[in-house]
Design a protein around this nucleic acid. Structure first.
Length: 627
RNA sequence: GCCAAUGUAGCUCAGUCUGGCUAGAGCAUUCGACUUGUAAUCGAAAGGUCGUGGGUUCAGAUCCCAUCAUUGGCUCCA
C-alpha cells in the first residue's frame, strides 16, 4: 500500500464520472469541501491485506496525533502505484481503514470515479509525507501486557519498539522490576516511578509557585504574547540573570566554550529535514521571503552546524561547546503549560561534548554528572530534593553495566530505570534528575545523553589515530535544566517551607534585596545612606526603607519580601560603632561591628556572582508591584 | 489539542444559585495627621466597559451562546 499524506488547510473535490464498472454507487456529483484535515491519497497494491490496512491506519493516526489533527479524508488514488490491487479488494481495505479510524473524523472520496480536486497544503515540515506499507514478519509481542485492553492492539503493536521496561536499580547495582520494589523508604522515587509509568494522579489545587512568582514580583503571564511566554519583573530578571551567570561560569570552569547561535533555522536545510523526520516536534514557524523557518527548540542545531565546520582531530577531543539559549521554543500543547514549570519559551544551558569513542564519552559523562549535582547544590537544590532516572537500550546496558552502576552509586540511592528493547531515540543512554514538587509532579532538571546518531547526521567528523575520519559520539548535558525551572523549584521549596511552618527564603546570593536599612526617624536618613554606600561597596544589594511608616510595618514588609538582614538605625546606633542586625534566618537581633557583619555575609556568598540592586535604593521611589 | 472549573477595583475576595436601589470590603495608591525601637498608627479621597463578543429581558456581574486566558485531568515532555 502506498500513501501520500498531506496536512491541508482545505480540499475541494468533485466526482466527474465513473471510471470503472465496479465504481462506488450512489455518489453525489456535488463538490465537497473540507477544512483543517489530513488528506491521505491511498493506492492499494496487489499483496495488501487486512493487516496492512490496520498498520496503515495506525501509522496515519500516529502522525495525525503528532500534528494535532483529527479530521481525515481517505482519497483513493491509483496513480501512486503500478502494481494495483483489484478494485474489489482495494475498496474493502479502504472501507476497513475507514472503520478502524476510531477517534477520528473520517470520510472518503468515491472509489472508481474520476474527480477534479483543489488542495491547499500547509507549509510545515511534517505537512507532507509518503508511506509505503508492506507485510512484515510477525513480531512476537513483548512480555509486558497491556493493561488497557480497549486500545486497538494494532496501534500498540506498531509502538512495541518503544515499549518500556521499568526497573529500580539499587546502589549495589541490582535491578528489581519496578512492581516488585519496596518503596517504603523511597517515597519520592515511588512518586517519580508512578508518574513516569503513567499512573493517574489527581490534584485539584494550582501549583503553589504560581502564586509565589507573582507575589514575590518575579514573573507573570504576558497576555499580549503567546501562552507560555513569561515576563520577568526586575526581581525575577535579577534572580534569573544570576543563575544564568552562575551556571555559565561553572560550565566554563568544566571546560565548555561558550558560543551563540541563531534562534531560527530553515526547515528545508538538509540536516533539519532528517532531524524532523526523526523527531517531530511542535515548533513555532515563521515564514520569511519564501523560507520556512522555525524557532529552535534546543541549542543542538546551532552547535552541531558549527562543529561541522571545525577541523577536529582525536587530539582535540573531548571538545565541549556550550550555549545558554535565551530562548528555546517548544510549542507545547496549551493544556500542558504551567507557571514556570512548563513553558513555550525557556532558557536552557546546553553543553555538548564531542567524544572520540564510547569509552571517552563514558568518562566524560561521569564528570558532567558531578558537575550537575554540584551546580544544583549551589543553586539550593539538594540531593534529597530530586530523584534520578536512567533510560537506556537493552544492548547498551548489557555492554556497559559497570558505568551505569557507577552513576547509581555516585547518587547513593535507588534510581528509576527505563529500558528499551531497541533504540528508538538518537541516544543510547539518558539520565536526568527529577524534582518532585508539592503536588507530586516530577520535573526534569539536569540531564545528559549519549548521542550516537547526530554526529553523522550533521556530518561532524574527526580524524582518529589511524588517519581515519569518524563521527564523534556527542553528549548533551544541561547541568541545571531550564533556568525558569530552577526558579520554579526554589519557589516550590519555599512553598513547602511555608506549609511546614518554616520561613521561606531564597539563597542569600539570589535575594533581590540582601540587606535593608530602616531609619527610625527622618533625621537618621543621612547616616543610613552613607551606611548603604559602605555596604554596597562590598557588592551587597542594600536598600533603605525611607517610607513614612511605623517601624513595625516596615519590619513586617521586609519580612514579607524574605529579606535576610534588616538594620534599624536609631539614636542608639547613631552613637555606636555597632549595628543592630535583625537576622531573619536566625530570628533574632544581634549587635555586630560593620566588619564582622561584612565578613559573615561574604562567607555565605563566596564564589557566587554578584550584581547591584535592580530597583531604586529608596523604597519611597519604588512602584508597588501587585500582580 | 480534548474534558472540567474559574475569570468582579492594581492585589485578595464578597455579590451570581433565586435577574431589580448608586456593584461592596480589606490591602495597595494619593492626601492629611502622627515621628515611630524590630511582623500591620489613625483619618479621608480616588479607584470598576463585572475577561471579551453576541443573545434573551422592561431590566444582565447575575440567565443562554460563542470566544480568550488561567488552573486541574487526559495526552505530551527529543
Amino acid at each position: 500500500m502506498r500513501i501520500l499524506q498531506l496536512h491541508c488547510d482545505s480540499i475541494e473535490y468533485t466526482p466527474k464520472k465513473k471510471e470503472i464498472k465496479s465504481a462506488e454507487e450512489n455518489v453525489s456529483t456535488e463538490t465537497t469541501r473540507l477544512e483543517e484535515l489530513v488528506v491521505a491519497f491511498v493506492a492499494v497494491e496487489k499483496d495488501d491485506d487486512s493487516s496492512i490496512a490496520q498498520d496503515a491506519i495506525s501509522q496515519i493516526k500516529n502522525s495525525m496525533e503528532k500534528i494535532g489533527c483529527k479530521k481525515l479524508l481517505l482519497y483513493p488514488y491509483a496513480h501512486l502505484s503500478s502494481n494495483l490491487a483489484p478494485p474489489s479488494l482495494a475498496m474493502s481495505l479502504l472501507k476497513e481503514m475507514e472503520s478502524l479510524a476510531s477517534g477520528l473524523d473520517v470520510s472518503h472520496s468515491p472509489f472508481g470515479w474520476t474527480k477534479s480536486y483543489k488542495v491547499h497544503v500547509k507549509g510545515h515540515p511534517l505537512a507532507e509525507s509518503s508511506k509505503v506499507i508492506t507485510k512484515k514478519e510477525n513480531i512476537p509481542s513483548d512480555e509486558t501486557e497491556s493493561t488497557d485492553e480497549e486500545l486497538t492492539s494494532e496501534a500498540l503493536k506498531s509502538e512495541s519498539k518503544i515499549k518500556s521496561f521499568w526497573y529500580i536499580m539499587s546502589t549495589d547495582g541490582t535491578m528489581t522490576p519496578m512492581s516488585e520494589f519496596n518503596f517504603s523508604n523511597h517515597e519520592k522515587l515511588e512518586i517519580l516511578s508512578k508518574y513516569e509509568s503513567a499512573k493517574k494522579r489527581s490534584v485539584d489545587e494550582p501549583p503553589p509557585h504560581v502564586a509565589l512568582m507573582k507575589k514575590m514580583a518575579i514573573a507573570d503571564y504576558e497576555p499580549a504574547s503567546d501562552a507560555g511566554n513569561m515576563r520577568f519583573f526586575p526581581n525575577g530578571r535579577l534572580i534569573k540573570s544570576l543563575i544564568e551567570q552562575y551556571v555559565t561560569s561553572r560550565v566554563k570552569e568544566y571546560g565548555g566554550y561558550e558560543v551563540e547561535t541563531p534562534i531560527m533555522y530553515d526547515s528545508h536545510h538538509p540536516s533539519m529535514v532528517s532531524y524532523f523526520n526523526r523527531f517531530p516536534a511542535r515548533q513555532y514557524n515563521i515564514d520569511s521571503e519564501g523560507k520556512k523557518l522555525f524557532l529552535r527548540f534546543a541549542a543542538c542545531f546551532g552547535q552541531f552546524l558549527m562543529a561541522n565546520d571545525f577541523q577536529l582531530s582525536y587530539k582535540n577531543l573531548p571538545y565541549r561547546l556550550y550555549e545558554l539559549t535565551r530562548y528555546s521554543f517548544r510549542r507545547e500543547q496549551s493544556g500542558e503549560l504551567v507557571g514556570l514549570r512548563r513553558l513555550r519559551a525557556f532558557t536552557m544551558p546546553d553543553c555538548h561534548a564531542f567524544c572520540k569513542d564510547l569509552e571517552q564519552s563514558i568518562e566524560e559523562i561521569k564528570i558532567r554528572f558531578d558537575l550537575s549535582q554540584s551546580v544544583l547544590k549551589d543553586l539550593g537544590i539538594e540531593e534529597s530534593d530530586y530523584e534520578m532516572a536512567i533510560r537506556f537500550t537493552e544492548e547498551f546496558y548489557n555492554e556497559n553495566k559497570k558505568p551505569i552502576q557507577e552513576l547509581v552509586k555516585k547518587l547513593g540511592k535507588p534510581v528509576l530505570i527505563e529500558m528499551w528493547k531497541e533504540r528508538f531515540f538518537y541516544f543510547v543512554l539518558k539520565w536526568e534528575f527529577n524534582f518532585i514538587d508539592n503536588l507530586g509532579k516530577a520535573s526534569a532538571l539536569s540531564t545528559d545523553q549519549i548521542d550516537v546518531e547526530n554526529g553523522s547526521r550533521y556530518g561532524i567528523e574527526f580524524v582518529d589515530e589511524n588517519n581515519v575520519k569518524k563521527n564523534p559520539i556527542i553528549l548533551h548535558n544541561s547541568p541545571s535544566g531550564a533556568i525558569e525551572r530552577i526558579i520554579f523549584v526554589l519557589l516550590e521549596k519555599a512553598a513547602f517551607d511555608i506549609k511546614q511552618g518554616r520561613k521561606p527564603q531564597f539563597p542569600l546570593w539570589l535575594s533581590p534585596t540582601q540587606v535593608r536599612i530602616v531609619p527610625l526617624k527622618d533625621e537618621f536618613f543621612d547616616i543610613c545612606n552613607s551606611l548603604a554606600n559602605k555596604i554596597s561597596s562590598h557588592n551587597i544589594r542594600v536598600d533603605i526603607d525611607d517610607r513614612n511608616e511605623s517601624i513595625g510595618k516596615r519590619i513586617r514588609d521586609a519580612e514579607k519580601e524574605w529579606i535576610r538582614y534588616i538594620i534599624v538605625i536609631g539614636e542608639k546606633e547613631a552613637n555606636s560603632d555597632n549595628l543592630s542586625i535583625r537576622d531573619r534566618q536566625a530570628g533574632n537581633v544581634r549587635e555586630l561591628s560593620f566588619d564582622d557583619f561584612i565578613k559573615e555575609f561574604e562567607e555565605q556568598t563566596t564564589g557566587k556572582p554578584q550584581t547591584g540592586l535592580n530597583m531604586p535604593r529608596l523604597l519611597s521611589r519604588r512602584p508597588q508591584l501587585m500582580v
